[in-house]
């Protein structure tokens, strides 16, 4: 029995014969990214409460990852009042994520609807893919070099957060909730960066014959290691994005005094 007359193919945005909830993935991605972009933009413009205990003796300094590395006061003093120091920094991690192979997939699907999902139609306007204007995506390897530098800088922030001034005026090592938050942040960012496709290419992906090159075992192991992490690049991308936002939020809350870095009772107990 013929149930309907059908053209062999139909084209156009959203046209599909799929019956599952294909739109959930791109919608969740769009909302997740959108929330992060709104939050991070607000915090960049907010330009306050990004460092706790700055210049105050006694406790380790917590610096928001959105504002790290913080330019010295002499340079910050030269900036217009509306110009947040975060603007000097965020182009590098922002560019790294913008040109990341995973994020490209995610925002092409979620925002460009190009395509919205597999086997779902998209607009049939002139298609150029990653040619011409989108050749800028090839800058990813350069942003990678900056991302690696930022891992070092953020690691230094963790160490600084763990160094306290003791009662006798010397320095002592201690761990606070804030330093653990910063440590978790740099750890997840490291997993994201070390699982990068460009890094994987750089350390060994560009080699055809491992047995023909110097340091063959080391380079092969590096390539295998990055390949292992690369399998979960999407996971690292998401959890590191969440964590960097959370780390900033935690520092904001501590710096603004909304939550204490350490309860007063515990502080007194330690000082006794």
């Amino acid at each position: 029995m013929a149930s309907e007359v059908s053209a062999p193919r139909e084209y156009g945005l959203g046209k599909t014969e799929r019956r599952d909830s294909w739109w959930v993935g791109p919608l969740a991605t769009a909302l997740g990214f959108g929330a992060f972009i709104l939050y991070s933009t607000f915090r960049d413009i907010y330009n306050d409460d990004y460092v706790s205990f700055e210049g105050r003796a006694g406790w380790g300094e917590l610096l928001s990852p959105f504002y790290s590395p913080l330019p010295p006061e002499s340079i910050r003093g030269l900036l217009p009042i509306w110009f947040s120091p975060a603007f000097l920094i965020l182009w590098a991690p922002g560019g790294f994520r913008l040109t990341c192979y995973y994020y490209r997939k995610a925002y092409y699907r979620a925002y460009f609807l190009d395509p919205p999902a597999c086997a779902v139609g998209e607009s049939r306007s002139k298609y150029r893919g990653e040619t011409r204007l989108f050749l800028f995506q090839n800058l990813h390897r350069y942003f990678l070099y900056f991302a690696l530098m930022f891992l070092v800088l953020l690691s230094i922030d963790v160490v600084r957060a763990c160094v306290f001034e003791s009662k006798d005026g010397g320095m002592t090592f201690g761990v606070s909730v804030g330093s653990l938050v910063l440590l978790a942040n740099v750890t997840l960012l490291s997993m994201y960066t070390f699982s990068c496709h460009s890094l994987r290419h750089l350390v060994g992906g560009n080699i055809d014959c491992f047995s023909c090159v110097a340091f063959r075992k080391g380079r092969y192991k590096l390539w295998k290691g990055t390949s292992f992490l690369n399998k979960n690049h999407m996971l690292w991308a998401w959890v590191s994005l969440f964590m960097v936002g959370f780390a900033d939020f935690y520092v904001w809350m501590v710096a603004s005094g909304t939550i204490p870095e350490m309860p007063d009772e515990l502080k007194e107990l330690i000082e006794k």
């Binding site: 192979y101 490209r104 997939k105 092409y108 190009d114 597999c118 086997a119 893919g129 989108f134």
Partner: peptide
């Protein structure tokens, strides 16, 4: 082969 046209949306991998 127009590799630049691929914008790595991974549908090929999914199927």
């Amino acid at each position: 082969l127009g590799l630049g046209y691929c914008n790595i949306t991974k549908c090929c991998t999914e199927v």
